[in-house]
Computed example of a mutant assay.
Amino acid sequence: MDVFALLAENKIRESIQNGELNNLPGSGKPLEMEDLSHIPDELRAGYRLLKNAGVLPEELEIKKEIISLHKLINYCYDEDEKRQLTKKLNEKILRFNILMEKRQVSSPALSCYKDKIYTKFGGY
């Protein structure tokens, strides 16, 4: 063991003895391990950062908007407003399809799970 590992081990033991590590959030619960094996090594850190920050990829944000527009159209009774919403919906679907085509070429991970993503978010 190197010096830093020994210092860290001693500090951890000392903290345990002093009770400083009692009642930590998640204490006694299993760790949630993320399966990032489908993401290329060079992209994993970026994906983890975005996920922890609560940021969705652009195509999933658009997919959420598509779902919302579908719901709005289903409950809309004004024909002019329905036409405007349908126009927005078509633009979003087009944008989504363009993004997915680009992602297929550039990201084997995304193309591998494309069908699962489509199924989960409504089959578009």
Rank of each mutant, 00 (worst) to 15 (best):
T119F: 10
Q104C: 13
S107K: 11
E81P: 03
L69W: 02
L99K: 03
S68K: 08
E65L: 05
Y77S: 15
F121N: 12
Y47K: 03
G19K: 03
I67K: 01
Y113R: 15
K51R: 12
K82P: 05
L56Y: 08
H70Y: 05
I98V: 13
K71Q: 03
K71A: 02
L56S: 02
L31E: 15
I66N: 00
E101W: 13
L110R: 15
E101H: 10
D41R: 07
K114G: 04
K88A: 07
E14A: 09
E14Y: 11
L94K: 12
M100L: 10
R44W: 02
I93V: 14
E34M: 15
K51A: 12
N22S: 10
H38Y: 14
S107M: 08
L99R: 03
G26C: 01
E65G: 04
N74A: 08
G26H: 00
E79Q: 13
H38P: 02
D78H: 10
V55T: 01
K63S: 09
A109D: 08
K92E: 06
I93Q: 05
Y113P: 04
K114W: 10
E58G: 04
L85K: 08
K11Y: 07
L49P: 07
T119Q: 15
M33V: 13
S15D: 12
E34Y: 13
E42T: 05
Y77H: 15
L99I: 13
G122C: 02
K71W: 01
I12Q: 00
Q104Y: 14
A8E: 06
S27E: 11
E81S: 12
P30M: 03
S37Y: 08
L85N: 02
I73N: 00
L7R: 12
I67D: 03
M100A: 06
Y75H: 09
L7I: 06
V3D: 09
A5W: 07
G26N: 00
Y47E: 07
H38E: 09
L69V: 02
S27Y: 14
D41M: 10
Q17F: 13
C112H: 15
S37D: 05
L99N: 06
Q17H: 12
K116Q: 14
R13Y: 09
N23M: 07
S27C: 11
H70T: 04
T119W: 09
P57S: 00
R44M: 03
F4P: 02
K114V: 04
F121P: 11
N90M: 08
I39T: 01
S68A: 10
L6W: 08
Q84I: 11
S111D: 09
R83Y: 05
S111M: 11
A109I: 01
G54T: 00
I62V: 09
L94D: 13
I117M: 11
S37T: 10
R13I: 13
L60F: 04
G26R: 02
K64Q: 06
L60W: 01
N23A: 11
L6Y: 10
N18C: 07
G123M: 06
L60I: 02
Y118H: 15
G19P: 03
K120M: 09
R95D: 09
I98G: 01
M1T: 09
F96M: 04
Y124P: 15
M100K: 06
S111E: 11
S107D: 13
Q17M: 14
Q104I: 13
F121I: 06
R44S: 03
V105H: 14
K11Q: 10
N52V: 00
S107P: 04
R95P: 11
Y124F: 12
A53T: 01
L94C: 12
R95E: 12
P25D: 07
L36R: 03
K51L: 05
R13Q: 07
K120N: 12
